[in-house]
Design a protein around this nucleic acid. Structure first.
Lengths: 148, 148
DNA sequence: ATCAACGAGTTGACACATCAACCACGGTTC
DNA sequence: GAACCGTGGTTGATGTGTCAACTCGTTGAT
């Protein structure tokens, strides 16, 4: 009411897509691989890093995660044998982790294509990328580095 | 790699926007009102319902939530005095709840406008709404009613 | 009338995310 | 050197979301 109908309608539509889309992809990924979206993000980042290992701080910046979130997640993943912590805050991908991310990649990319890539035209995809970049730029301009 | 660069780039940009945008709005809402996004959704739905009360099933369908999520959320909100459960699975908005949603509405709408509505053009807003509707339609066509 | 089937709602266990408080260490600056 | 501060990382408490299993009431078939 206070906001323009355009803004409100777009926001509501976006909110619904966000919840349903990520819920579905998360569900499919978890069912068929036992990995969560958070697991997948970490393993994906590690896999395509040189030597399959990165500093914690690189993960934090690359994924834009809060530090305590990363710490908890890495602890859980180390307990499951997906990663190893080396001195110097270095994170190594284990063989088990490499195996699981390889199995999960197809499932994840198929789900993204099925519910996202195949549904939208090339113009829509680039439009969404532009929209996202603008919003992200707005968000990161006010919060330089703090608030982490 | 397997996916088209367009799809992958759009997906990554969207993922980043999703995390940062909802994180920021959630944070601002929580800091200044003590309500979470989930609280806000419930209270908002209740406030604009006739008699400030709805059946649980209406909430579940209207918000597209899983039933256990709704149950847990309603239990927590009743403990805080924001809502009341009446026989027949009817949920009432309490005075305290009405007061809090009124205070939170401005904050929430301002945040949505600041980080979302003001950043995008009218064309972008309608394009995003269309995109969202298409994706949601794709998601709900395969899963008729089950899986809830 | 009985029993099976279904759906709404609840519960408990667990994973996940956030916050605040803390520890450790590498810089200052005096 | 000593007190200080900013930053990276950890921890514990709490709120949130999901799954599976359960209760309960209604419905439909035999």
């Amino acid at each position: 009411m206070t906001t323009t109908p355009d803004v409100s309608a777009a926001w509501q539509a976006y909110q619904r897509m966000r919840m349903l889309l990520n819920g579905q992809i998360n569900r499919e990924l978890g069912r068929s691989t036992g990995l969560s979206e958070a697991d997948y993000d970490i393993l994906f980042f590690l896999e395509q890093s040189q030597d399959s290992s990165v500093r914690s701080i690189a993960l934090r910046c690359g994924l834009a995660w809060e530090k305590s979130r990363l710490s908890h997640q890495l602890r859980r993943m180390e307990q499951r044998g997906l990663i190893e912590k080396a001195p110097g805050a270095v994170i190594h991908l284990t063989d088990k982790g490499r195996e699981q991310i390889a199995a999960a990649r197809d499932c994840h990319e198929a789900a993204v294509r099925r519910y996202f890539g195949d549904v939208l035209s090339a113009e829509q995809l680039t439009a969404l990328a532009t929209i996202s970049d603008q919003v992200v730029a707005r968000l990161t301009q006010d919060l330089p580095h703090h608030a982490h």
